[in-house]
Design a binder for these strands. Structure first.
Lengths: 189, 189
DNA sequence: CCTGACATGTAAGGAGTTACATGATTAA
DNA sequence: TTAATCATGTAACTCCTTACATGTCAGG
């Protein structure tokens, strides 16, 4: 389980509320770890009980009040310990690949549309990542800002983003290959 | 849920027992969908109850008897219906990316070893995939054999394998990038 | 007044993981 | 006799998903 650890990393980068965390999991952290607000609130509660994080009630004007969480010493230690633990290369689950092999036993025309849809989704994500890279990681967008992270933190965020970019490019190329294969073998049957 | 559907595809490609399915999930199907024998037996029982698959007791010599499963009409229909259903591009979970961003808040030396270990695992998998491709998908290894799948089935298996190969190559390249980044920014702190 | 963004939760059910459990046969 | 492979399962627990639920405040 790494949701707790993903939350710890995010809170170390910047303290925030459950709601804010949920939004980060739709954006930057979501590039490599997804979580819904339901999961996040539940885990935050557990982490608070375990003394991993501290809460601070923040009254707000013009908005509902929020609880701002930050990492406690115990949480930092838990993260550190997890970082030392070796993990196994992750197991994959690609519904689309199941469908592609299943297409041999069914009419593939609907699969072609599905693959095109996925290719477009990956193109959109790639464009989104590239825009984020241009915005946050060009030499001009330096760490000089008031909230800008330190060099190492920033570089590590960048290399993870580059991984997302490489992944989307690979997927687009592969889905092109899939479509070419379906075009050659699908209708000919 | 696609485990049921992955099992249906596998049984359509070739009927077999729960044990044989578990082994396939360590090999070809496991490239894009993992499952343990515990899951498989549980799901097989449910699929049998639902009339998706048929069972046949196969007495064996020199081995324990086995139950050979094959896809029934209801199962074929269920697969067909699932193939028509659009699915969302899958959500990712990359522990390693969490660790990389977490390395900004901890000593990165153990992470370097971890990344090197993962890179080796991906190199091994790539070699394994390439060997499988050479064995099963060169022009010489044609469909002429007694158990060889038909052209479309074979081509679709091949394009999924090419996806696995592209994925491993991408990962190896990215992990090289990660190691270079850690070398530049890790020890300098 | 109504919509949308902000903010925080509960409940039920499905899926996956880990540990436990049994038993046959073959080869070293 | 011991290990390895074949073969099939149960139980407990954790995790994730989906649906439901409530409420504030700003702007049109």
């Amino acid at each position: 389980m790494a949701l707790e650890h993903a939350i710890l990393v995010s809170l170390l980068e910047k303290p925030g509320s459950g709601y804010e965390l949920a939004r980060r999991f739709e954006r930057s952290i979501g590039y490599f770890w997804t979580a819904t607000h339901q999961q996040i609130y539940r885990v935050l509660k557990r982490m608070e009980n375990d003394g991993w994080i501290d809460v601070r009630d923040v009254p707000q004007q013009g908005r509902p009040d929020k609880k701002e969480y930050s990492v406690a010493d115990l949480g930092r230690a838990a993260l550190s310990s997890w970082l030392q633990d070796p993990i196994e290369p992750e197991s994959v689950r690609h519904d689309l690949a199941v469908k592609i092999r299943g297409a041999a036993f069914d009419d593939p025309t609907s699969l072609i549309r599905e693959v095109e849809r996925h290719r477009q989704a990956h193109r959109d994500r790639l464009a989104h990542y590239l825009a984020g890279e241009a915005r946050d990681f060009t030499p001009e967008a330096s760490t000089a800002g008031p909230d800008g992270p330190l060099d190492a933190e920033r570089e590590l965020q960048h290399v993870v983003l580059r991984g997302g970019i490489a992944y989307e490019r690979m997927m687009i190329g592969w889905l092109d290959d899939v479509l070419a294969t379906l075009a050659r073998f699908g209708p000919a049957r």
